Simulated scan of single mutants.
Amino acid sequence: MTSDLLSRDEIRRRVDALGPWFHNLDLRGVPTAPTHFLGDYPNVKWRRFAEIIPDDLTGKSVLDIGCNAGFYAMEMKRRGADRVLGLDTDDDYLAQARFAAEVNDLAIEFRKLSAYDVGQLGETFDLVIFMGVLYHLRHPLLALDLIREHVVGDQLLFQSMLRGSADVDEIARNYDFWTTSPFDSPGYPKMHFIEHKYADDPTNWWAPNRACVEAMLRSAGFAILAHPEDEVYLCRKVPRPQQDGPVYPVRGAR
């Protein structure tokens, strides 16, 4: 069935059958998550930083890692991106994304693939979106390394849940073994580990502070171009400061 033949009642029936939804999408007047605890999410967040993405993405390719129901992938296609690919590991989210793109008459490809496996794509993209995924991963820095190495051609749009201080200390490039006071500062890069659940979600493994995500981005080989929203960064791919690759050998003094 083509999208122009779908009635509002049919869209509503399909939305209910594919639920529950985390993205609140407007599918021809049918909201997918109208009672979302964050409000009209993710549109309410997108409006706070949408201007950092060019209005015209003609000729550009976009990869959305952890696309969920496809909100950001669809926004990029609406701005004219030639190729948009959305990845997720959840079959239910992928089904939602495919249906939403169909209703909106947007030609977007969706595949089941994890952030750790992006090297299988064998291609790079002008813009890679990595929003709301880092803290769900048991190995977040490895994922950043792999994403930079394999799929980022130019820019990365990044977001993570942040907890702790918003301060960012100026960190020395080295400290001797007996210097411990910087670690106690709220502005030192910190990643809080969640052993069980946070917000009733057992996949919320990490809660970094601002200093931590900024340090991780730099370490993975990204220069921060803009920080338009508390949790959002636009970055450009640059040479990594330490060339130790995505698998870390044991080095240093013993």
Rank of each mutant, 00 (worst) to 15 (best):
H192W: 03
T179I: 12
N209Y: 00
R163F: 05
N209G: 11
Y233D: 05
E170Q: 12
D167G: 06
W206H: 15
E231N: 15
A166L: 14
I224A: 02
S181G: 07
P186K: 01
S160L: 00
H227F: 04
R173V: 12
A220R: 06
C235F: 12
R173I: 13
K237E: 11
L156P: 01
M216F: 07
D200L: 10
D230L: 01
R173S: 12
A226T: 02
W178N: 15
D201W: 03
T180V: 09
Y188P: 05
R210E: 05
E229F: 14
H227Q: 10
I194M: 05
Y175Q: 08
V168C: 14
A211F: 03
Q155L: 14
D200G: 11
D230F: 08
P186Q: 00
V238C: 13
S185W: 06
E214R: 06
F158V: 10
W205Y: 14
F177N: 09
A166K: 13
R163T: 04
P202T: 03
F158S: 05
E195L: 02
W206N: 10
V168A: 13
I194L: 12
A166N: 13
R236D: 11
R236S: 15
D169Q: 14
K190C: 03
R210D: 01
S165T: 00
I194V: 13
L225M: 14
A220D: 08
V168N: 12
N174M: 11
K237T: 11
E231Q: 15
H196P: 03
F158Y: 14
T179Y: 09
R236G: 08
L157V: 10
S181P: 01
E170C: 11
I224Q: 00
D201M: 05
H196V: 14
W178C: 12
A172Q: 08
P208A: 01
F177R: 11
C212D: 01
D184I: 03
R163N: 03
F183M: 12
V232G: 15
R173G: 11
I224D: 01
S160E: 00
V213E: 13
E195P: 08
D154A: 15
L225Y: 08
A215S: 13
S165G: 01
P182N: 05
Y233I: 04
R173K: 13
L217E: 07
H227Y: 05
L157W: 09
E214L: 07
P189M: 07
D176E: 14
F183Y: 14
K190P: 07
L162V: 06
M216T: 04
W205H: 15
E229D: 15
A199H: 13
P189F: 12
